[in-house]
């Protein structure tokens, strides 16, 4: 079975979309790394000499470092740990953004089946970012 020409065209279209998305991912990772490095420098300048926190036993970090608004306001106030967490949030958001961009791509191609498939994936990701209520 040979693929139809329309399939060829759409796969070529996909490649172009893919390239833009690949660059988006790299930009996201570099932005995330930037925030983490900034937070790391501040953290080590302030507490670099202090003994290491006890990681042998699991004690969840402050609630402020575990919620999206908390991390955001902490980062704005240049709190080192919040800046690092904000970088982690950017990092987690990067693949989510990529899925969102794919959704737009499929919409532009009027490919409703894949709009639906992508929307399911996006919903799962947003559910998780929101904290996975009930999990």
């Amino acid at each position: 079975m040979t693929p139809s020409t329309s399939q060829h065209e759409s796969s070529r279209h996909d490649v172009k979309l893919e390239q833009a998305l690949g660059n988006l991912l790299r930009a996201g990772v570099l932005t995330a790394a930037g925030f983490v490095v900034a937070g790391a420098i501040l953290l080590l300048l302030r507490t670099g000499g202090a003994p290491v926190r006890d990681y042998h036993h699991f004690v969840p970090p402050d609630a402020q470092l575990r919620s999206v608004p908390g991390i955001f306001f902490g980062a704005v106030a240049l709190d080192p740990r919040s800046l690092i967490q904000f970088g982690m949030l950017v990092l987690i958001a990067t693949p989510v953004l990529r899925v969102a961009a794919s959704l737009v791509g499929f919409l532009l191609e009027h490919d409703l089946l894949y709009v639906a498939i992508t929307a399911i994936v996006l919903c799962v990701l947003i559910f998780s970012m929101a904290g996975g209520r009930g999990l």
Binding site: P60, I92, V96, L125, S128, G132
Partner: peptide, 11 residues
């Protein structure tokens, strides 16, 4: 990313 969000909220 699907589990990282939950990890973050759980600490």
């Amino acid at each position: 990313a699907a589990s990282a969000g939950i990890y973050l909220h759980r600490g």
